[in-house]
Design a protein around this nucleic acid. Structure first.
Lengths: 153, 153
DNA sequence: CATAGAACCTAAAGCCACTATAGCTTCAAT
DNA sequence: ATTGAAGCTATAGTGGCTTTAGGTTCTATG
């Protein structure tokens, strides 16, 4: 046995060690990412090292931008070390593609914004390029840059 | 007079011409971005060209990633063409900075994800680099890349 | 003129991933 | 015994819409 995790701790300690908020821990329990923990005599949650490791995994994956649903799948896989890891690989690849697409859209957006800001002469609203460009879609170089609601996603 | 906008049209036509959904138009009215329009005898909304131009401005600014509150301010300025445009300029500059910061965070994230995906040998979960890296924060090159919940924002 | 179906109406709930608030109870230190 | 921090549950709020439910009105055709 590697380590036996005998001592337990309260939710505040768990949250602090994993670097998240107390409410977030309870939320993860509610949506089933974390198991319902043992309670002490006063009905307070008591956690062990295994839960801390699980929560750290969750937070880390979330920081990587994986959705909660993706984290749920990754957790399921981490729980079965003998299964093939194709699916984990597929999830990560897909996420990488999404991040790359987002970067592309944001870069086009950044270029348009730069152009807009650079052309503002600082006069009255009537002559302002910023207001003007927003009023008239034809004044954009790359219309694909902001073609829909997903421009920012 | 430039154009007199005498003919009116229904909400579906307005939405189609502005490139958004009907419910979105009603939502913008509800939050005060669009004025309450005239109604016909059967209580249906009837719009004119001025509202179409206003909605187009809104959609365009939203596509640029401006928040609804920023759009509200920009609209207020567009309504007063004789005022100085410093504030519009400041809003756009600030938004540009936010977009640039987002691109930076996402780029660091992309590098980490690439590294992760490249090192997955395709075996069992136990040996999978993806699951391993998510389990252990120390295996990341740039911890700043995903240091908090705002990694993805 | 009757009818069918598209388009409209309001009100309320759902989405994501938390965060915040209110009003209480329990713990730990003095 | 007291006090203040930390815990508890339940509910609402965030942003920016989207969806659903259950109705009414418009418009084109027979």
């Amino acid at each position: 046995m590697p380590h036996s995790d005998k001592q337990t701790f309260a939710i505040g300690t768990l949250a602090r060690r994993a670097g998240c908020q107390v409410q977030t821990v309870r939320y993860y329990e509610q949506i089933g990412l974390l198991p319902e923990p043992a309670r002490n005599a006063g009905n307070q949650r008591r956690y062990d090292g295994a839960t801390l490791r699980r929560l750290t995994f969750i937070r880390h994956a979330r920081d990587f931008g994986f959705s909660v649903e993706a984290v749920r799948e990754l957790l399921g896989m981490a729980d079965h070390p003998n299964m093939p890891c194709d699916h984990a690989d597929a999830i990560a690849k897909r996420h990488l593609e999404e991040v790359e697409a987002r970067i592309e859209r944001l870069s086009a957006l950044r270029d348009e914004l730069k152009r807009m800001v650079a052309q503002c002469a600082g006069g009255r609203v009537e002559e302002c390029r910023i207001v003007e460009v927003l009023s008239d879609h034809d004044q954009c170089l790359y219309t694909a840059a902001h073609g829909g609601q997903q421009a920012i996603r």
